[in-house]
Write a protein that binds this DNA or RNA. Structure first.
Lengths: 238, 238
DNA sequence: TACCTAGTGGGTACATTGTTCCCATCAAGG
DNA sequence: CCTTGATGGGAACAATGTACCCACTAGGTA
């Protein structure tokens, strides 16, 4: 693999037209995304994709070199859902918030995305399209592209981490095959005993008992506003 | 699985003493972590763990219900590396920074952690130990535990996302079996042609050509300080 | 028109994995 | 000494990714 390795995106470009193709890469990627969204990456098998497309399993290998490449294409494809405004507003803060919210929504729509992007740097055409817009928006923060890029990266980090954390419980349920109720019925007593009743974790106990339970949206918004505040301070200050 | 499902942590507790056990859960988990650290999760197979331990493959199932549970134990085990100070300092900002840095260092030491935690909420004993400290430190930010917890969560999001993003390139190399040099030799020309020479992505081009290349540490620090600034503003303001 | 060639679909088969089943072994208690 | 239950681990199976191979077909060529 190390010798003749080429990026998918290269091969997509000089893809000669095929004679009466029965499938298309787009179709395959779309089907794969549907499966992974609905049933988790663990349910994403080549046979399954083929079955859903009504084709033979190994026919897929005419379009995609393997499952790995399929996942790479999926990661880029969902970037295509990120709608890019014609131009950034005049308020960088509004723009960065919009970027954060759209990225988060996308990551939550595709629960496999946040983990899969962890080994697939998004450099496909759709990702580039989005990055270009994000950098344009970040240009409103600072004319210094180094600063702008670093701060955009910070927002990106926050959004991705928030998605990973938010999804972890849901994905744990999927992995174990438990419903949300069953999950709670297993975890709650454990937490009560080990955390609360043991007395070993007073702060965690306080957190569980006294804290208002913010939903994920509120929680996300608080952190995001903090980060944007910090960015604002750094920019106006310098 | 849905009927007789119990958390690992339960079973760890009422683990009856075994007669002349040849292995131990700790030993198995440690070995698994070593393999995953050195060669990636893809190299982590039950047979491999057994081989490294000089035992039969299926003997592992006397200690662990399956690979999934092993990964759960691994995720908790690495939390054990997070050294907890006897008590938080008087400066919450120092404490949160320390938390962020230690968590990041741990995530980078174990490249599989950030993605695996995405489907395994850390509720094991080692994770609880760390969370307790983190909440104590966050108590310095605000007496309101709801606020403190939300802001700590923001830091946590940022750190995790930073790790995922930072590791993505390295993990891509591992997945493709390319060295760092080979990887660059493949990606660089692609970026040059598609991003720079195409003229389609002026901001991205500016980013690549004009921006000073910050290393990951610097990049992390900038975002972290922004976030802490934002937290500080929110707390003193309110 | 007849034929050739390269691209295409897809079945078969194999290696690798997680995991279940089963049996031999062995420590400890009666 | 014998019984019992726990333990190590081999054999075997199901699921999966994928290489290999063959049949078929469209479109150009003689």
């Amino acid at each position: 693999m190390s010798e003749e390795f080429t990026l998918v995106w290269r091969r997509l470009a000089d893809q000669r037209r095929r004679q009466r193709p029965a499938l298309s890469i787009d179709q395959i990627v779309r089907t794969a995304i549907q499966i992974a969204d609905a049933e988790g990456v663990q349910a994403l098998t080549m046979r399954r994709v083929a079955t859903d497309l009504g084709s033979g399993t190994t026919s897929l290998y005419r379009y995609v070199t393997g499952k790995d490449e399929l996942l790479e294409l999926m990661v880029d494809a969902v970037h295509g859902e990120l709608e890019v405004p014609e131009q950034p507003s005049e308020d960088w803060r509004v723009d960065l918030a919009l970027i954060a919210h759209r990225q988060r929504a996308m990551a939550l729509r595709h629960p496999w995305f946040a983990t899969e992007v962890g080994s697939r740097p998004p450099i496909g055409p759709q990702a580039l399209r989005w990055i270009e817009f994000a950098l344009t928006a970040a240009g409103g923060v600072s004319r210094d592209i180094t600063v702008a890029s670093a701060l955009l990266g910070a927002v990106n980090n926050y959004v991705l981490g928030a998605a990973v954390n938010e999804l972890s419980e849901q994905e744990a349920q999927r992995r174990t095959g438990l419903t949300e109720d069953q999950w709670r019925a297993v975890v709650a007593p454990y937490i009560r005993e080990v955390v609360i009743e043991s007395g070993d974790f007073p702060e965690a106990t306080r957190r569980i008992i006294d804290a208002v339970d913010l939903n994920h949206d509120e929680q996300f918004e608080i952190g995001l506003q903090c980060l944007l505040d910090g960015i604002a301070a750094r920019v106006t200050g310098a």
